[in-house]
């Protein structure tokens, strides 16, 4: 499982680096959800579907029948900013009346309010009005599975950030080596070197945290990886743009494909403050703060 996860994370980093246009991360996540040891799920969803994966809480999930004995659900509420929500098959994870559940969603039976993030990636809000889920489609999850799904979503997003950060490094190093001003490449200026080194470092830092979380998935490793990945975005994007000059600020430059994603992804699946707070709470609940980090 860990090895499969590490492979997925490597693929997600590549997707982030290439600013891959499509719900790749979400699809990988959907398949990871399928890989959870829940046999019915593999039957419930056919291969070849494009999956998005939505975990936002809905405002109401209730039993469909008055007795409450039937597993069928009626769901009301909003799923805000679902990646590719209008076009993908959405898997919903939610707290049901009898514990966490997972069910597929038919966007055609929802009210879709289209939207995008700063990079233009679809982030559609789906409104559910007394949406009926047949009992066969409702798959109970254990609380641990629900928690793990949240960790995997955050790790996937952090891996995308790591990839886009690498792209910022690549493009910036290339630009400063080839762009000449005052008769020499930008990269020969000490002030530029200092900033460039910090960019390289910050990107390496994110990559190392993401790789570590992919090797050993845990609340601490994922909280640290996503908190750090999101926290590093400001510095990475700032330096990449500063060293690209005006071209990076316009559609003439490619660096925006990475930086606009970074600015969006840092908020998605939990921003740095929320993950840092979770890590902080873990640390204060533990006997030994060092033992929490070095297991």
């Amino acid at each position: 499982m860990t090895t499969a996860l590490a492979t997925h994370v490597t693929a997600l980093r590549a997707a982030g680096r290439l600013a891959e246009p499509g719900p790749f991360a979400e699809t990988v996540l959907g398949h990871l959800a399928l890989a959870l040891p829940r046999a019915p799920l593999t039957v419930a969803l056919a291969d070849g579907l494009t999956l998005a994966y939505a975990r936002p809480a809905v405002t109401g999930v209730g039993p469909a029948g008055t007795s409450g004995e039937d597993a069928a659900l009626r769901v009301s509420g909003a799923l805000p900013r679902v990646p590719y929500g209008a076009t993908a098959t959405v898997l919903v994870l939610a707290e049901g009346p009898g514990g966490p559940v997972l069910f597929p969603l038919d966007p055609a039976r929802t009210t879709v309010v289209p939207g995008t993030n700063l990079a233009g990636e679809p982030r559609d809000t789906l409104h559910l009005h007394d949406y009926a889920v047949a009992a066969d489609d409702v798959h109970p999850l254990s609380p641990a599975e629900l928690a793990e799904a949240g960790l995997r979503a955050a790790l996937a997003r952090a891996a995308l950030i790591a990839g886009a950060a690498e792209r910022c490094v690549e493009l910036t190093v290339r630009h400063t080596a080839t762009r000449t001003q005052f008769g020499r490449p930008l990269s020969r200026f000490q002030a530029v070197k200092q900033e460039e080194a910090r960019l390289i470092e910050e990107s390496a830092l994110v990559g190392a945290a993401v790789d570590a979380a992919a090797r050993e998935l845990s609340l601490v490793s994922v909280a640290a990886a996503k908190a750090q990945a999101s926290a590093s975005v400001a510095e990475i994007a700032r330096i990449a743009h500063q060293l690209h000059g005006a071209i990076g600020f316009t559609e003439l430059g490619d660096v925006r494909l990475a930086t606009t994603r970074l600015w969006s992804w840092r908020d998605e699946d939990g921003d740095e403050s929320s993950w840092a707070a979770r890590l902080g709470r873990e640390a204060l609940a533990a006997d030994d703060v060092w033992a929490l980090l070095a297991v």
Partner: peptide, 12 residues
């Protein structure tokens, strides 16, 4: 959150 942010960086 501030404590967690420092720990995340130490981790990384």
């Amino acid at each position: 959150a501030r404590l967690g942010a420092l720990l995340a960086r130490v981790f990384a």
